[in-house]
Design a protein around this nucleic acid. Structure first.
Lengths: 168, 168
DNA sequence: TTTAATTAGTCAATATTAGTCAAACAAAAT
DNA sequence: ATTTTGTTTGACTAATATTGACTAATTAAA
């Protein structure tokens, strides 16, 4: 992972608070793979409204950037930012997701899962779990078009989950 | 028996008393499969009102989480928390499917998957695949009622798959 | 057997967080 | 100059935790 500055400014005359908050969080993440913050604390530290923390997280700490966010509301609530490590097979995942598109039938979906298994990306048990999750009998959606749409989403969701692992 | 939570694999420094009580009870449960507490004692230990113990038990020690609760009022009353071992009892698959019914929200579904992981019925990776398959963001079904129905079917489908895998 | 004491359960009000969304504003691009 | 994109703000929403008044069950004492 590089930590180079995004294109816009190597010139540090940056009075964009969101960038400062981003840098603040990334500095802490240099120490640890995962941090927990209290939204209101960070907001106060930078004198911004709490929802700006959400903005920073949504724009700079999303999955594409290599972070997973978890949070909890209520007393003792928190936002956790965790850095993830991407697996090798990104291109394969991209291609598969491309093939799936936004609709896929059960036979094709099974083929894709089978291929992942044969490529040692997933185990046999994982393959079986995935197959059962998208089977026609499991979904039981009357409208074929909707069924294929939902199946595509589930399959893409699971494949996206294979992209990364937490921790080191 | 895993002690780390899937979503909390790091040092967790939050000030939420309910979480502390949960951890306190789970620490004791590491020794024994079943414990008996006196509600008022635990409440006093953590300086909370007694009914908060009920809150902790209801939210963290329900069947979905792999625990059975029994209690008795009156003099010498108690609350017993008993850990259920999923892998030991086919029956529990039935109970889980019963709990799921034909509709389930994402938080409850995640709890069930988490419990299956903690009881070594599924691996961490399998748990994460399952969670992503039923997540709100994956399904993206506008109608909440339909979403919960589809989620229930997917989860039941996957759990049934695990049942047939039993005994490798 | 009746009553008192001793437990746990329920439920709703309140408190404490984080999330969403769209409007206002600012900066960059055309 | 205008349009497009990114940032900041705050009103409203949602989730979770905490508290306490009231209820219910059980045992102990009168």
């Amino acid at each position: 992972m590089k930590k180079e500055n995004m294109s816009e400014n190597n010139t540090n005359n940056n009075n964009n608070v969101s960038d400062l908050i981003e840098q603040y969080l990334k500095d802490i993440l240099l120490e640890d793979d995962s941090i927990e913050i209290k939204r209101s604390d960070v907001a106060e530290l930078f004198s911004v409204v709490p929802s700006q923390i959400n903005y920073v997280i949504n724009t700079r700490f999303n999955l594409q950037n290599g972070y997973i966010i978890e949070s909890k509301r209520g007393g003792g609530g928190y936002i956790r930012i965790e850095r993830v490590h991407f697996s090798q097979a990104q291109q394969v995942f991209d291609d598969l997701i491309d093939v799936i598109g936004d609709s896929i039938g059960q036979p094709n979906a099974n083929q894709i899962i089978q291929a992942l298994y044969e490529d040692d990306v997933i185990t046999l048990r994982e393959a079986k779990i995935m197959i059962s999750s998208i089977s026609k009998d499991t979904l039981r959606i009357a409208d074929k078009v909707v069924e294929n749409t939902v199946r595509a989403r589930i399959l893409v969701g699971m494949i996206n989950r294979l992209r990364y692992e937490e921790g080191q």
